[in-house]
Design a binder for these strands. Structure first.
Lengths: 182, 182
DNA sequence: ACTAACATGTAATCTGTTACATGATTGA
DNA sequence: TCAATCATGTAACAGATTACATGTTAGT
């Protein structure tokens, strides 16, 4: 997931590590931590894998910066990661939010639509956000006030996302432009 | 976080590992995985730490079950974990949902209220769920349709949770209601 | 002079994932 | 008899956390 995020950011242009962290934290919601011990080893891994290249930039301020640039291999990898999103990545809300943040980087519109369809299918397959032995937890039956808050919040998020997804996919049914569906 | 969840479940009575997994998945939303390689080592850690005890139960079906029971030390640890919730645990939505699922296990009403107040403060401190260089990302300005979906969903969750928290804390001004039935 | 923000890394440790490994019971 | 569900574990590896470690520039 971190690789996807870094690759996605670099697809818009070269960045150095510190800036990558800043942007990632902005895009990941409050409470998200990204320590140096996570970020820099990840960058080194991506470089070893040939997904990014590194160049020195004697930056104007502070210590010299290491500017990371996405390679063609890295871009291909980004597309593959986005295209192949499935399993927990379409089932889990926070994971899917991360995917959504970079989905526009997948060039093929029908592949982007397929990702949204998989997310919609996963949400419709799951009866609700939280279950009790597989049965949806009913808000009305929940006595614990804190679990009520949990249910209430999850339900609001679910309804908003479902409405957005359906609107999005409906709009795609009537393609004003582009080739007819295969 | 996993320790908190296991301890919280066991506070309602002894359970075996398989049942712990089943209940945890119900309480953690879709897409949450909990592999054997995570669960069983965690149980062994808790046992080594004296937080739970283990007893054989030649279960009716399948392999013999290892029933875990919360010790007094374990219960104290659960209370401490819930009482000391702060930092990323009150800033991050999914993390705080996990806390909420077990908050009723904290016996002291004023301590439970303090946790909610810390969450409210954290949410009010953060200008929005997602930011752009510290500035809230405005839905109206967002051109990327997928990031619009992300923003829309996060906003719905945020508003629902804020409304619930404020209602909850307002109601707490009149301490008629004691500890919810465990 | 000091602090905050900029900037990058390593080492020890812990935790999580994935695959492997076993074995009983229940229902189709 | 075959698959699903129940039930528990280990081993190899990957990844994350935390603390340690360094150094510059800009503002107060």
């Amino acid at each position: 997931m971190l690789d996807l995020q870094i690759l996605g950011l670099l697809d818009d242009g070269p960045l150095h590590g510190y800036e990558i962290r800043r942007r990632l934290l902005d895009l990941s919601g409050p409470g998200t931590r990204l320590s140096d011990g996570t970020l820099y080893p990840a960058l080194a891994r991506l470089e070893r894998g040939g997904l990014v290249t590194r160049s020195q930039d004697a930056g104007a301020r502070g210590r010299s910066r290491q500017v990371l640039t996405l390679t063609d291999v890295g871009r291909e990898r980004l597309h593959t990661l986005l295209r192949d999103v499935s399993g927990a990545d379409v089932e889990s809300m926070p994971r899917f939010m991360t995917v959504l943040a970079f989905l526009s980087h997948l060039p093929d519109a029908s592949e982007r639509e397929a990702v949204l369809r998989r997310r919609l299918a996963a949400m419709e397959r799951a009866p609700a956000f939280f279950t009790d032995d597989g049965v949806p937890r009913r808000l009305a039956q929940e006595k614990d006030p804190y679990r009520r808050g949990m249910l209430l919040t999850a339900r609001a998020a679910r309804q908003a996302e479902l409405a957005w997804l359906r609107e999005q996919l409906e709009g795609a049914q009537h393609p004003d432009q582009g080739r007819p569906a295969a």
